[in-house]
Design a protein around this nucleic acid. Structure first.
Lengths: 343, 343
DNA sequence: CTGAAAGCGCTTACAG
DNA sequence: CTGAAAGCGCTTACAG
C-alpha cells in the first residue's frame, strides 16, 4: 500500500505551510480566500484524510463512543434481536454528531483498559443489573456514561427508560377488560427500581383500580426466556386451572408460553389469553398474532445517544432520566374470558 | 477529570527514562529484571494506560476493524437478528486477537473517510450485492477486506460463505422424501454467484436426482420478508392448488408463508408443508415448529474475523473462500404429502 | 494573512 | 542495561 498522504504533502503541493493547511481544514485563523481555495483543491486532488490519531493526541477527544454490553456471551443477549436494533439506533444518532461507535464486550472485569487507551469520549452501557460489580468499575472510569435497559435504582445516573409502569398497567387493564380475573404474570426477576419491577407496579395498580385483590393473581418471577416460558406453561396447565390469562413481561417469554400451552392442548386465545411485552418484529406473524406492549427500541437508542452527546458537550439537560412511551397493541392472542366467574 | 497519567509520569516515578518504560511495556530492548519489576509496579500503582492514539501515530496500525453494513437503514437489515449474532461472533474473534470492532453504516458513498482517518486495519463487509457501487469504493481503499453474506461472484475476493448449495439440496430432498412432487420456492432474488442462487442450484440438483422435472416446480423469485411471504401464501392459495410444499430460502419468509396460509384456512403441515432456511432462534417455538436448514451465524462471524486477521498479518491462507456447513433440522412444519399423485 | 516552532504521548534506532 | 533524541501527523499560540 502506498504510503499515506499527510498534511506535509498537501502543504508542499499547495506551496503553503502545514499550519495554513490545518487552518483551512478547521476553519480557524485568518486565511485569504485564494489560499483556502488552493488548499482545498489540493486536498481534494490528493484525497487527503487527516489522521485522527494525530488529532486525538492534541485534542484528547477521540470522537469515539462505545456500547458496552456486559456478559455478551450469555445466550440471553445473543438471541435477543433487541440489541441489534439498539445498536443501529445508536449508530445513527452518533453518526449525526460525527461520532463513531464501538461494540465492547466486558465480561471480564479487567477489560476496561480500552476505554482509557482509546480516549473514549463516552459509554452507553446496556443491560446490566443493580449492584453488578461492573457498574462501579464503569463509574470509576469517570467518563460520561448513559445506562440503558439496566436495573439501577441510583437516580443520579443518566438512564434511558421505557414507561414500564404504564406498560404493565396497560397490559393488565386490557386483560381485565376482557373479563379475566385470575392472571398469571411471568415477570422476570423483580429487583427494586428495575424495569420489571416498574411493570409489576403498573400491573398491581390496574388490579387495584379494578377493585380486585392481588391474592387471586399469580406471580412467577423467573427469568424470561422462551424455554422458561414453555416450561411455565406446562406447570400452569398442571397446577393452576384457575388462571385464564398470562402476562409475560417479554415477547420471548410469551412465545414460549404459547408454545407450551399448545403442547398441553390448551388453545390460545380460546382457553388462555397470552400477552407479551416489547413487540419485536415477527410478533404479528405468529399464530396467533401476539397482543403486546410496544416499545420503540430504535428510538430508545437514539435517545440514549443524544443524552450521551449532551453529557460529552457538557450541555447536559436537567433530566437525568428519559422515559419513552409505550403502546398497547391488540392482536389475536388475547380474548374474552370464557370461564364462568367463580367469585 | 484529572489529567491523564502518561509515560512521563511513570518514568519520573520509577526514576528511569521514558524509553525504558516503553521497553518494559513492549518487552523490547534489554532491561534488567529489577528495572522491569520496578516499572511494572509503578504502572500498576499509577493505573497507567498507554495512549493508543500516540502509538498509532508511529505504528500506523490502529488495531481497529470495522463491520461495514451498507444500507443499514433498510428495514430488511434492521429487523434481521442475524446481524446481531454476527456482530457478537466478530467481536469475540477480534478481541481474541486484541483487535476492536466498530460498526459502520455506509449508505452514502462519501462516508468512507473514516477508514482512512482512523487508520482502520481491515473491514468486514456484510450483506451487499453483486455490482453494488459500494464495492468498488471499498476495494479502492486498498485495505484488507472480507465479504460476508454478500452476492459477489468475483472469486479473487475474500469471502465467507455457507454451503448454500448443500442447504438447498437437503431441503428439497427432505420435501421429496415426504412425497411432495410440486414444490413452490420462495427464493429471493436469483443473482448469478449469489447465495440464493447456490441454494437454488442445490434445489434443482435434488429435483433432478429424484428423476423429476423442474417444470412442475414453481419459482417465486421475490425478496424474502415476512410480509412478502404472507402475500405469496395468499396468492398460492388462490392460484396454485397443485403446490403441496413451500421451500423458503429464509426463515423470515417461511414465517410469513405460514401466517398467510393460516389466514387462508390452509393448515400447515396438514395441507401444506413449509420449510425455512437459517434456523433463527424462536423457530422451534413456532406453531408449528419450523423445519429448516440450520446455519451457524456465530461461527460465520468467527470465520470472517479469523480470515481478516490473517489478511492483516499478511499470513493469508491459500483459500479465499471459506465454506461453512449446514444442517437439516426437521420439526413440525413439514409432513408427508397427502395429495393423490396425479402424474 | 502566513509560517516557524513547540508539543501531544508514544516508539525506535543509536550511543554510551 | 539505559537514556537522549528524532519523529509519527497533527494543532495551537505566537511572531511577523
Amino acid at each position: 500500500m502506498s504510503s499515506r498522504i499527510t498534511i506535509k504533502d498537501v502543504a508542499k503541493e499547495a506551496g503553503v505551510s502545514i499550519a495554513t493547511v490545518s487552518n483551512v481544514m478547521n476553519g480557524t485563523g485568518r486565511v485569504s480566500i485564494r489560499t483556502v481555495r488552493k488548499v482545498e483543491d489540493v486536498i481534494e486532488r490528493l484525497q487527503f484524510y487527516p489522521s485522527k490519531a494525530a488529532r486525538n493526541l492534541k485534542d484528547k477527544s477521540s470522537h469515539l463512543i462505545a456500547v458496552v454490553v456486559p456478559y455478551l456471551k450469555e445466550a440471553r443477549l445473543r438471541d435477543n434481536p433487541f440489541y441489534w436494533k439498539l445498536m443501529i439506533g445508536i449508530e445513527e444518532g452518533a453518526k449525526h454528531k460525527s461520532f463513531q461507535v464501538m461494540l465492547m464486550d466486558v465480561n471480564d472485569e479487567e477489560s476496561f483498559a480500552f476505554v482509557q487507551e482509546r480516549h473514549l469520549d463516552g459509554l452507553i452501557v446496556v443491560g446490566t443489573f443493580q449492584n453488578a460489580p461492573v457498574i462501579d468499575r464503569i463509574l470509576a472510569l469517570k467518563k460520561p456514561v448513559v445506562f440503558m435497559d439496566s436495573y439501577i435504582s441510583d437516580l443520579s445516573l443518566y438512564q434511558v427508560y421505557l414507561d414500564d409502569e404504564e406498560g404493565g398497567y396497560l397490559g393488565a387493564k386490557h386483560l381485565l377488560e376482557l373479563g379475566h380475573r385470575s392472571i398469571g404474570v411471568m415477570c422476570g426477576l423483580l429487583i427494586e427500581g428495575g424495569v420489571y419491577h416498574a411493570r409489576w407496579k403498573g400491573f398491581q395498580k390496574a388490579i387495584r383500580e379494578a377493585g380486585l385483590s392481588m391474592d387471586n393473581q399469580h406471580i412467577f418471577d423467573i427469568h424470561t426466556s422462551a424455554e422458561k416460558g414453555r416450561r411455565l406453561a406446562h406447570q400452569i396447565a398442571e397446577e393452576h386451572p384457575d388462571i385464564t390469562a398470562m402476562f409475560s413481561f417479554s415477547d420471548i417469554g410469551a412465545l414460549g408460553l404459547i408454545r407450551g400451552f399448545h403442547e398441553k392442548g390448551i388453545r390460545v386465545p380460546d382457553d388462555m389469553s397470552v400477552m407479551g411485552f416489547d413487540d419485536m418484529y415477527y410478533m404479528e406473524y405468529m399464530n396467533p398474532a401476539l397482543t403486546t406492549i410496544r416499545q420503540n427500541v430504535h428510538e430508545k437508542g437514539r435517545a440514549a445517544v443524544e443524552m450521551l452527546m449532551e453529557l460529552i458537550d457538557d450541555s447536559a439537560t436537567s433530566a437525568r432520566q428519559i422515559v419513552l412511551p409505550v403502546e398497547l397493541i391488540v392482536r389475536e392472542s388475547t380474548d374474552i374470558c370464557k370461564h364462568t366467574a367463580q367469585s
